[in-house]
Structures are given as C-alpha cells and as structure tokens.
C-alpha cells in the first residue's frame, strides 16, 4: 500500500495530471481544471485537419469536375480554398460550441479563457489566426523543403524548434496563440458522482444493529491516521469492480492485508474474520471520517499520519 510511504503533499507526483492554476470564475471560488495533454491536442488537430481537407476535396470536386484545369491552377485554388475553409471552421466552431471543434469534442478537450471569464470572439480569433503561423505556414514550408537552400533549412528548423519549445516548456502547454489570446486547453471534466461509502456504511449499520456492534471504535482507535490515509482507503474501497476471479481474489487478499495492518496499528482489540475484512474497513472508514471531519470543524486539520496529533497538546 502506498500509505506505507511518506505521502507527497502535491498530487503532481510522477505522472500526475497538470492542473490549471488560478482559474477563478467571477463567483470567486477557484476551480480545479486539468490541462490537456499534448497527445490529445495533437489528435484533435489531426481530426480537424482531416475534416477540413474532406470538405476541401468535396468543394474542389464540385468546382472542377469535368473541367480540364492545369495542375498549377488546381494547386493554387486548392491552397486558397483550404485557407478559406479552415480559418472560419476553427473560429466558428470554437465560438459556437463553446471552445470545442469537432476534433476537440471527440478527444474530450476544450478551450477556456485563463482569466476565468467566458471565451470571447477576440480570443478565439487570435488563437486561431496564430495557428496559421504556428501550424499551417511551417507545414506548407515543409512540403516545399526540397527546393530550399541551407539558410532556408536553418530558418525553417529554428522556426519549428521555437514553435515546439513554447508549448513544451510552459506549465499550461500554451502555444503562442494561446499566450496572445489568454486561453488554455483543458480536459472536459467527466461528471460522475460516486455513492458515499460512509453513507452506505451507516445505513447498513442502522438496519443491522448487530453488525455495528461488531465494529465499534473508541477515540484512541481513531487518532492514528490523517486525511491522506483516509482518502487512500477510500480509493481502495471504491476499486470494487474487479473483473474475473483472479482479480477478485487478489483484491480480497489486499483488503484483508490492509484490514490486518490497520487493526494492528490502531490496536483494535476485537477479532476481524478474513471474510468480514471489507465490512471492517467500511466501518472504520466511516468512523475515521467522522472523527477527522469533526476535527476540521474545530480547525484541527490532520493532513497525514505524520502530522502532529490534533488535541495532543491541549
């Protein structure tokens, strides 16, 4: 169990999600949002390019089907049309779908204004105009890379390196257009309200009083752990949907091991049968949470088991 390790204060340990700082809507309550990964953004961009290219092909087919046009004309008109299709596409979709293009919808990300207010037309136009310079201009230049001299290679290389460096090396993964527009791409947070474990435990205790009597915790049992351990236990208890017999057996073993460790640490005198380990943990979770939350009401916050015991000095 990770509870055995010294817990990190910040969730950004290892590959934790990057969180957007300072997103404060006008209501004044800061809201936590996760910055979108570069992979998701790249995927969204590819989807958008494919969509606009399909539209371009359709329009070109309608325009030039049956006409014998020289290749240079086709290329020229195609390049111009592509611009006149994609520029409004990005601006209009992001504006009317509240920060999502088709690609962003599919990958579950969206554009927001970092200042906590709504996106406005200016921000959307700015970030998508800069996209011309950041994505399409170097992209076109790379297509023409064959007839380029050494200076051209160098210039193109530096340009692309700078463009890549900006989103890679800032914390919110903002590209230059995002910086000028004051926007940021975040993950669309999923809405999932899981049942309250403590409520389930107290309800079952109320309906079956003899079970509650089985696991009764005294104050000295509840002084060992802090918020971090409680929420680690919550994660363990929520990870129920283990599929397959093997996984179920592994989880049962884990639950028993955790129950045994907690039992010995808090010096709980009663017996905990292996098949009752889960019930023991649920009851302990409810009791421990009640204790810690009561402490919070009186201003005694205990972050983890290493922080000083609340009330020890009182």
């Amino acid at each position: 169990m990770s509870a055995a390790r010294r817990p990190a204060r910040r969730p950004a340990r290892g590959r934790g999600p990057r969180l957007l700082r300072d997103f404060v809507p006008p209501e004044g309550v800061p809201i936590r949002l996760e910055v979108a990964g570069l992979g998701a953004r790249l995927a969204a961009q590819v989807i958008d390019i494919v969509v606009t290219l399909l539209v371009l092909v359709a329009v070109m087919l309608i325009l030039f089907l049956g006409l014998e046009a020289p290749e240079s004309l086709l290329l020229g008109v195609g390049a111009a049309l592509f611009f006149f299709i994609r520029a409004p596409y990005y601006i209009v979709t992001e504006l009317f779908w509240n920060g999502q293009t088709l690609g962003k919808r599919m990958t579950g990300i969206r554009v927001i204004a970092t200042d906590g207010r709504g996106l406005d037309a200016h921000a959307v136009a700015a970030r998508n105009l800069m996209k011309e310079m950041e994505i399409f201009a170097p992209g076109t230049a790379m297509l023409a890379v064959r007839d380029m001299d050494a200076i051209g290679y160098l210039a193109l290389g530096t340009w692309i390196a700078v463009l890549l460096a900006v989103p890679l090396f800032n914390r919110e993964h903002q590209r230059i257009g995002d910086l000028i527009a004051g926007t940021c791409v975040v993950v669309q947070p999923p809405l999932r309200l899981l049942p309250d474990i403590a409520a389930a435990a107290t309800v079952s205790a109320a309906t079956q009083p003899e079970e509650a009597a089985e696991f009764a915790f005294l104050p000295h049992h509840l002084g060992h752990y802090g918020d971090y351990e409680l929420q680690t236990l919550e994660r363990l208890l929520r990870a129920q949907t283990a599929r397959g017999e093997k996984a179920a057996a592994a989880r049962a073993a884990q639950v028993q091991a955790v129950a045994e460790r907690i039992r010995s640490r808090i010096e709980y005198a009663g017996r905990v049968e292996p098949e009752r380990a889960e019930d023991f943990l649920r009851a302990f979770y409810a009791a421990q949470r009640a204790e810690l939350e009561r402490g919070r009401l009186f201003g005694r916050v205990r972050a983890d088991r290493h922080s000083p015991r609340p009330g020890a000095g009182a």
Binding site: A198, A199, R289
Partner: peptide
Amino acid sequence: APDTAALRST
C-alpha cells in the same frame, strides 16, 4: 458514534 447520526458531510 457514527452509526446513530449520519455524518455531517453525508
């Protein structure tokens, strides 16, 4: 005891 009254947060 947590089993007589539901938690405040609940």
